Simulated scan of single mutants.
Amino acid sequence: MNGGSFRRHRRLRTSAGIRNMVRETHVQKEDLIAPLFVKEGEGIQTEVPSMPGVYQWSLDLLDEEADEIVALGIQALIVFGIPSSKDSCGSPAYDDNGIVQRAVAQIKERHPDLTVIADTCLCQFTDHGHCGVVDNGIIANDPSLELLAKTAVSQAKAGADIIAPSNMMDGFVQAIRSALDEAGFVHVPIMSYAVKYASAFYGPFRDAAHSAPSKGDRKTYQMDPANRLEAQREAASDEEEGADFLIVKPALSYLDIIRDIRNHHRLPIVAYNVSGEYAMIKAAAANGWIDEEAVVYEKMLSMKRAGADLILTYFAKDIARSLTR
């Protein structure tokens, strides 16, 4: 057959060297954000049953985990707090001596060059498990903004490099940006959970963070998984209000949304590879059904290929180890 009658695409796949030369998408350690669960108490290093390899840490053991993250070359982590007590308005979230604030300060003192992100929400700190103030069974949007702003300022005072509000209240970016600026934290960026779906993939996280709602669900403030255009409206609002990063959560079932946001926005995009996505791969690997390392890397590539600049993932340490080899 005449070699000119069709294209020889396989020429660029003939060796590992050539494949490496033409590879379009890469996953690097600098792309990764490692989650960290910090819990009140002492001597706590408790593995989350539904998330093998993920632990809750007390402050007295926290340095061990932070040291390993830094040693692996991961440059950013996000802190989720588990308080010893909760109340209806989530006051431990904005307590200057709260668990997140103390964890942030401790990590920054030991690792000043590590980028420490504070998850800014109320759900782990409210006795009802919702991300805002509950008034007669309704999640009250505007009263919640004041508490979220107080939380963000408290976290910035503790030394957080980035504030990451995850509550999906309307106007939350504007409220937090104004509060940070007024408190003198004009340099602290906001990594907004701009596009956060009411997903079934969050179950293991709620086990880890003790944040499941006691009544009802979060469908009145998190997005309907069926909606695509709504994601554009949410992201546009957050950018207009002053967001510096845009998170899409979850990642794997929403790669089309990541691509849509990438096509319309020039802010850095963060894909949140959530707990349920992590747990499924871990379970399949434990049963010998998949090659975990290969599948994880392929999934990370899919997020980067879709348009994500950064990936928040419970696989961060595993990926960093594989990239080191």
Rank of each mutant, 00 (worst) to 15 (best):
G4H: 10
S5Y: 04
R7L: 15
R7C: 14
R8I: 11
R8D: 15
L12I: 08
T14F: 05
S15Q: 02
G17V: 14
G17P: 02
M21P: 00
V22I: 10
R23E: 15
T25F: 15
K29R: 11
P35S: 05
V38Q: 03
E40N: 11
G41Y: 08
G41K: 07
I44Q: 03
S50L: 09
D60W: 04
I69Y: 12
Q75A: 11
Q75M: 00
A76G: 03
G81Q: 12
S85D: 12
K86Y: 03
D87F: 05
S88E: 14
S88G: 02
D96H: 13
D96N: 13
N97V: 00
N97W: 03
N97K: 15
G98S: 01
I99T: 13
V100I: 14
V100S: 13
A105T: 10
Q106G: 06
I107A: 03
E109M: 11
E109T: 05
D113W: 00
V116I: 05
I117R: 09
L122H: 02
L122R: 03
C123R: 05
F125T: 12
D127L: 01
G129P: 06
D135W: 01
D135H: 03
A140F: 11
N141E: 08
L148M: 09
L148S: 02
A152Y: 05
A156E: 08
K157E: 13
A158K: 02
G159M: 04
G159H: 02
D161F: 00
D161L: 05
S166F: 06
G171P: 07
S178A: 15
D181Q: 12
E182A: 14
A183S: 11
V186F: 07
V188A: 10
P189Q: 03
I190F: 10
S192M: 12
V195R: 07
K196P: 01
A209K: 06
S211N: 07
S214H: 14
G216E: 14
G216P: 13
D217W: 02
T220H: 01
D224H: 07
A226F: 08
L229M: 09
E234H: 11
A235Q: 05
A236F: 10
A236P: 07
E241H: 10
K249H: 02
A251I: 04
L255R: 10
I261E: 05
N263K: 13
H265Y: 13
P268I: 06
V274K: 05
E277Q: 02
E277L: 00
A286K: 12
V295S: 13
V295A: 15
V296I: 15
K299V: 14
S302L: 10
M303V: 04
D309H: 12
I311A: 00
T313L: 04
Y314P: 11
R321C: 04
S322A: 14
L323C: 09
L323D: 11
R325C: 10
